[in-house]
Design a protein around this nucleic acid. Structure first.
Length: 260
DNA sequence: ATGGTAGCGCTGCTA
């Protein structure tokens, strides 16, 4: 079973990229973030044509998450649904069961600058994820929390730690929030297999950061231990940025294979 | 060097 996650930065702008990627990567499940589409505008038919069912939770011009699956898409829940109160209705979480694995697509708030209300909301949202997890799941289940966490777990996950001192994505409270999810019973799936530096998944569009290798690893797949035991291979597919479809996403898709 | 690009949508916000 192949599970992937990709912040597409507008599914409307990126649909040709996504279609081509599905054709050659053939994930069984693809979690998407930043679809930036209202639900009535979601391109259902292109996914169906490639053999995927799709569930989506959007709000229009910002945010938006979705899950495409060719191995079943059951018990779809948009948002937290139970556990903590939903709060302001931003479309940042959606879950479904795909061939026995409970899969969630997450888009964690960016946080902008440390000490701002946006940063506080990011930490609150992450605390909400922990409460939701504790209220609705058990570490013994087959769980995959996939998405754009907007957190680089360690200093090896940014191109130059000196340039990130005092910045969001690397701060202690953000990493502690990620650590709380791990303490509950989730592991950084990609790190189970690959210990290298520079396995970045996001590059700023500006200043040629992609071609200069200035990136961060912020797109993660957090796995419960029973699912982590089944992981066999993975990839950050930087080739997904190539092709004739126009401007690529500023994120690359991440995929993991499981012996399930 | 405190810049730069992209998406949405038409003005400036968000990342």
């Amino acid at each position: 079973m192949r599970i992937a996650t990709w912040n597409v930065n507008s599914l409307k702008a990126r649909l040709p990229h996504v279609e081509q990627w599905l054709e050659y990567a053939r994930p069984d499940v693809l979690c998407m973030q930043e679809t930036k589409l209202a639900d009535e505008a979601f391109p259902v038919m292109p996914f169906n044509a490639l053999g995927y069912e799709v569930a989506f939770h959007g709000e229009g011009r910002w945010n938006g998450v979705a899950i495409a699956s060719r191995v079943g898409l059951d018990d779809v829940v948009a948002g937290f649904h139970e556990g903590p109160e939903e709060g302001p209705a931003e479309a940042r979480l959606m879950s479904a069961t795909c061939s026995g694995v409970r899969v969630s697509s997450l888009y964690v708030p960016n946080g902008r600058e440390v000490g701002t209300e946006h940063y506080d909301r990011k930490l609150e949202w992450l605390a909400g994820v922990h409460r939701w997890l504790a209220a609705t799941h058990k570490p013994s289940e087959l769980l995959a929390l996939c998405g754009d966490f907007n957190i680089a777990p360690t200093d090896r996950d940014v191109y130059d730690p000196k340039k990130f001192v005092g910045a969001t994505h690397v701060s202690g409270p953000e990493r502690d929030a990620l650590g709380a999810l791990q303490e509950w019973g989730l592991v950084d799936g990609f790190r189970l297999l690959y210990d290298d530096d520079r396995l970045f998944t996001w590059w700023d569009y500006r200043a040629g950061d992609f071609h200069s290798g200035r990136g961060m690893r912020i797109d993660l797949m957090l796995l419960s231990e029973p699912l982590g035991e089944k992981v066999t291979w993975g990839l950050v597919d930087r080739n997904a940025r190539k092709g004739k479809q126009g401007v690529p996403s500023d994120h690359a898709p991440v995929l993991l294979d499981f012996d399930l």
